[in-house]
């Protein structure tokens, strides 16, 4: 039996009791009772983690409902407790975990929805940077522009799907009750201009363009990369759309 003043042993015993194994805590508890206080601590640690997941996966929550979500989130939290004191970014692995969570087998799009929620959270907390607008680009001599690189804003996120998950996600966030998944590839862009977070559908070709920009390619190379993969792409329209969305922070 550990000494009652062994703080490490106490913490191990208490952590065990929080996940339903109170035996080792017995030396520190009054005899012959299951104290209601243990349930209080168990409840508040669990709800702390589940609340953080609810905040970070609001669209998943909206689609599956509160009971289903909290049951799933509780299981996830038991397997993946937070590893840092801030819960702002807690649950990065939740989307991938849902892929193997048996009850979500009937909801094959759920991990993708979780992934899109995650992009939104990442964009929310990403670093600040100025946003270039159309005037900034208009000031560049047209002959010079192709030989410049554009830096993507640190809050920009995107994802491409073989199906219309982004459309479903956007409709769900907009509060639509009629949710349908289109059977065509879709891409979503998240940006954070001064007014707050914006989300929109973009052409899948636009993600090829963005990827080339992030890779440090000159604009003419980024354009060529995009056309090589998407022969029908209208790159000047894509570029203008990305500028309008606030996707770029600098030219060099």
């Amino acid at each position: 039996m550990p000494a009652l003043n062994d703080l490490a042993a106490f913490q191990d015993a208490f952590a065990g009791a929080l996940i339903g194994e109170p035996t080792k805590l017995t030396p520190w508890l009054a005899p012959d009772e299951t104290p209601p206080g243990l349930a209080v601590y168990r409840g508040s640690t669990t709800s702390g983690m589940i609340d953080a997941l609810e905040a970070n996966y609001p669209t998943v929550l909206q689609i599956v409902g509160r009971d289903w979500f909290r049951a799933a989130a509780g299981r996830f939290a038991a397997e993946h407790p937070p590893t840092e004191p801030s819960l702002l970014a807690y649950g990065a692995a939740f989307g991938a975990w849902l892929e193997h969570f048996a009850p979500s087998a009937d909801l094959p799009y759920l991990p993708g929805i979780a992934r899109l929620d995650r992009l939104w959270t990442e964009a929310l907390f990403a670093a600040d940077a100025p946003v270039l607008n159309a005037c900034d680009f208009a000031a560049i001599p047209p002959a010079r522009l192709p030989f410049l690189r554009v830096c993507v804003h640190p809050a920009v996120r995107w994802a491409v799907f073989d199906q219309g998950l982004p459309g479903l996600w956007l409709a769900s966030r907009a509060g639509d009750s009629e949710l349908e998944i289109e059977d065509t590839p879709q891409a979503m862009l998240v940006t954070r201009p001064a007014t707050g977070i914006e989300t929109r559908l973009i052409a899948p070709a636009a993600t090829t363009f963005l990827k080339a920009c992030v890779g440090g390619k000159h604009l003419h190379r980024a354009t060529a990369d995009t056309l090589a993969r998407h022969t029908e792409a209208e790159v000047s329209r894509i570029f203008a759309g990305l500028i309008g969305a606030g996707a770029f922070t600098a030219l060099r």
Partner: peptide, 25 residues
């Protein structure tokens, strides 16, 4: 209070036995 043990966080303000050795720590 404490919340961290073995690399995992239990997001709450957890109790402990108020001993001399705990005071030192």
């Amino acid at each position: 209070a404490w919340s961290r043990r073995g690399g995992a966080y239990h997001p709450d303000l957890l109790p402990f036995p108020r001993t001399m050795s705990a005071l030192v720590r």
